[in-house]
Design a protein around this nucleic acid. Sequence first.
RNA 1: GCGGACAUGGUGGAAUUGGUAGACACAUCAGACUUAAAAUCUGAAGGAGAUUAUCUCCGUCCCGGUUCGAGUCCGGGUGUCCGCACCA
Length: 855
Amino acid sequence: MDYSPKKIEPYWQDLWSKEKSFACEKSDKNLPKKYILEMFPYPSGRIHMGHVRNYTIGDVITRYRITKGDNVLHPMGWDAFGMPAENAAMENKIHPKEWTYKNIDSMRVQLKSLGLAIDWDREFATCDHDYIKHQQNIFIDFLKNDLVYRKESEVNWDPVDNTVLANEQVIDGLGWRSGAIVERRKLNQWFLKISDFSDDLLDGLEKLNKWPEKVKLMQKNWIGKSSGAVFNFKVVEEFSKIADKIEVYTTRPDTLFGASFCAIAPDHAIATIISQNSDNALKFIKKCQKIASSEEAIEKVIKEGFDTGIKVQHPFDKDIKLPVYIANFVLSSYGKGAIFGCPAHDQRDLDFARKYNLPVLPVVCPENVNKKDVVIENEAYIGEGKIINSKFLDGLNIKEAKKVAINKLKELRIGKKEINYRLRDWGISRQRYWGCPIPILYREDGKIIPVPIDELPITLPEDIDFSQPGNPLEKHPTWKYTTCKETGLKAVRETDTFDTFIDSSWYFARFCELDDSKPINRDEANYWLPVDQYIGGIEHAILHLLYSRFFTRALKITGHLEIKEPFDGMFTQGMVCHETYSNERGDWIEPKFVRKGDNKQESLHIDTGEKIKIGPSEKMSKSKKNIVDPDDIIKLYGADTARWFVLSDSPPDRDIFWTEAGIESSNKFINKIWRTILDYKEIVEQKDIKNKSEQIQFMKVIYKSIKDITLNLEKMSFNKAIANIYSLIGELSKSDTKEKISSETASKILKHLIIILSPFIPHLAEESWAHVGFEGLVCKQSWPEFDESFTDNESAKIVVQINGKKRGELLLPRETEEKEVVEVANNNNKIKNDLAGKEIKKIIYVKGRILNFVV
RNA sequence: GCGGACAUGGUGGAAUUGGUAGACACAUCAGACUUAAAAUCUGAAGGAGAUUAUCUCCGUCCCGGUUCGAGUCCGGGUGUCCGCACCA
């Protein structure tokens, strides 16, 4: 009987669906719970291999936990708002809503064809009116609890299209559609006070011990807590009309005597004043505004400054006067938007000082270097040392000098110690149509008020025009005009929509119960949350996870939740990569159009016969066309084979390289499993009795495998679990094994084997379970316990080393004492020879492992 | 530019967390079955060398260090990938 995924996979998918096998029970306090969640997908229309990998990993854990007897929640939804829908509207004249829901429908079918153990009863999309309603409700609660405010903030502005651009739409400083030079422009926008939680978000990381260290480190650096000082530079008298002081933040108050200039951000208040009287300053500021607003763009730009002519006094020495520059690398959003530069001990300041011929005075002397020999060439010294050239700070180390300098600033009443954070408040306004409307009214009397709760949801108008650039909500003839019910005054709606990160910051709580009456059902959330295992790409390591952690805290303050941390366990999976192919004209070619030539050396286009150049394996992307469509793979090999491939070989947190050979070999092995099961079924039916002592050996094989696979599953080492299965099947399918195994042993092994396989290849497992004649569904069986009495513990291979080099090995009982092992080793011919004529200085023995002679 | 990660045979990876480097696979080669091919089964295999059933040396990106012992720990470097706040 052939293995036919085309027939069996849809059959079992239908059955699971009909029987609601994975619809999870409501909270049952008597049952241990597990909430397994993968990051929900953006409904682009087609699933890609990254999805297959992500959801397969989650599915294996889900199915495994079910067999372990847990009450498992494993839901699915859609992160449905976002720019691609608007782009599709502009390019293909299809309404974003229609486009999105169509995509959801086709992706749901695709996901179901993977055989995922998902509770589809809890499905929702973030663009559903129901979800919008609750999200707007939450926002109003945040507003009432003082977690929201409005301020001016910069955006990328395309002066040709008259529209706001996302960072990804700015390519080398130019708008992606118009090609115009992008400018920075200030808009009034809504912000969430995430920075109030900086310390709490930082401290919370320590307790997240089921998170990857690298993710926690990235978040820690992102929050960027630093200790330093704020203080004022007094502006020299003759410029006092412009300003009397400049406030700066520094983490190096110890280097203050090495200061040779001050620099302010291009949008600093003083820069604005200066630009009113200086065309050159204005020109320079305008030039700075042409740099895109992303931090990356600002940091990469060549460092330049504009000398304002203003001078400030050194706080510790009135006679030292420093020039003030407007500099393109000073960020107004960090610290005070102004710094002092100490070129000797900061590379960026040094580069700047060399460019504008500013003095470079070293004030830190490295250990073991004479004060006179400290010379700064083209490299700033940022290491430890003793302070020099700094009057009252001389001779102190950096740490002491910081303290003394801060105390002095305090004494002079011009500064103080300050803790600063890199994390800034979360700007949530987007000038786009396809997002959740921000429920705010601007009343004609100037008041800004939330929309009354009973008027929610504020939904998007459907009759919109995408032929004009800009936000269609702004341009809609009627949508934004309304009246305030309470006062009867005229009002205008907020036409900005929420950042889509808001949508994904609480969806995991919504899955606990689709409660009509409120966003989050507290009882259900209390049972299910936190998510026990969250799984997603490393690209979300900072923003999405940090926003969700903040949101959960904010939801606690507003009474929606009782916890602070949403995700107890976090796992970041690697990307799916594929070789890139291009023809001689440099066009990218999809892998399915490439075949090997007759000599196997070259690759050819399947239709045209053109030679194809093979490039390096990179992350699958539409732009390079190095995509393999999961649908094609499932049609050709079946979902079980696809699942098997994405789990095997590479560890799940590393990148995986998709290859034709790899998927084919997976398929071959799946077939081999099927044949082995059929063979064992026959053995069971023959009812033969075989040699008894050999049966114990076979049971040892299966129990050893159960142990290895279980431990590897617990560690999420799916590639190793799969290697264990390869070994097991290899052992079981040997003709010798099949001859000697008894009917009874074969039956026991078969039962364990199929259950073990079920999380990985659920369709094949279900089919074999039924085919062999076991009762019920395999997905509802209990995971086999491994019996330690069958695991071989008695003997051990002990490696004998001389000076750490392997010279031989001995097979001895595991518990053998050192004395005895040395004796056996000394009687071993080879080791005796190797030791001959050498003086043994020391013997190191690690029980059951290694014996090392040091000679 | 800043922050983070990774680097082991021809290829993907394993190594009990400082104790036999290369498990398990892919590709390759040889054999069996076959008229033949495919499929399947069996076996070989890091590199170099020798006195070739065996043994020796070299070998985990590069340079240096700690240790009886380093793929694993420490310092320095190189390369590749990810994130940088309006992509999701």
